[in-house]
Every structure is written in structure tokens, then in C-alpha cells.
């Protein structure tokens, strides 16, 4: 629902990362890592990104989105596992205190310039 705001922040960060001395830079792709538990829909993000990058160095840049799995760790027994469903209870000790190791990422890792 808030993908437009995220697309705007993404564009700001990407433009800031472009080398100042480069004349007419063109970005080929942005490499993102989006956690499965984050409330970001890749399709919506791409849609918003395309709209707001017209006539910028990011126009036609591809969003490569790597989906990061939800990994949970139980601090009580030390078990670590990948959750396929939103059941985060430790399968071994039931009442253990669990912690999210990954799955909430909304990160930009890098960008690739067009040669």
C-alpha cells in the first residue's frame, strides 16, 4: 500500500549514489533484497518505480528483487529454521522466545550502470 513512498526513497538513495563526475549516467539495474515478511509487493514497487523514473538516469532501469526468506531463531533452545508459513513458534520447545533473523529486509544492495 505504501510502495510509492518506498519507490521515492529508493530513487533518492540511488540518485545520491551515482558518481558526481559521470556525465549523463544511465542505470541498468537496481539490486534489491526484500524480505518475505516485509509489507512490500514487488509488482507494485516496480509499477511505482517505472512511473516516477521517467526522464531520470533511472528510466528503464530493471529492479532485480531477491526475496529473502523468513528465518527464525529460538533463543531458548538455539534451533534456527526457515518459516514457510506465518507460524513462528519453535517446533521443539513450543514456548521458547523466538527472534526474527531475516525476512524484514527492504534493502538496496547495489546498482549497475549501463556500459
Amino acid at each position: 500500500m505504501h510502495e510509492m513512498g518506498i519507490a521515492q526513497e529508493l530513487v533518492r538513495i540511488a540518485l545520491e549514489a551515482l558518481p558526481q563526475d559521470l556525465k549523463d549516467p544511465k542505470v541498468a539495474s537496481l539490486n534489491l533484497r526484500i524480505g518475505k515478511l516485509s509489507s512490500v509487493v514487488p509488482h507494485s514497487l516496480t509499477f511505482c518505480f517505472e512511473i516516477i523514473t521517467k526522464d531520470t538516469p533511472l528510466e528503464h532501469a530493471r529492479l532485480n528483487i531477491e526475496t529473502v526468506p523468513v528465518v527464525i531463531r529460538c533463543d531458548t533452545c538455539g534451533r534456527q529454521w526457515e518459516a514457510e508459513t506465518p507460524v513462528f513458534r519453535c517446533p521443539d520447545c513450543e514456548l521458547g522466545q523466538v527472534r526474527l533473523i531475516s525476512g524484514r529486509e527492504i534493502d538496496i544492495d547495489s546498482l549497475t550502470l549501463l556500459d
Binding site: I6, E9, R12, I13, A17, D109, S110, T112, L113
Partner: peptide, 13 residues
């Protein structure tokens, strides 16, 4: 050419 950024997109918030 690849430029490393490694940032949370919501960093400003």
C-alpha cells in the same frame, strides 16, 4: 559497473 550501496530503503524514517 556495479556501485555498492547496502542501505535500508526506509533509512530516512
Amino acid at each position: 559497473m556495479e556501485i555498492k550501496i547496502r542501505k535500508n530503503i526506509l533509512e530516512k524514517n
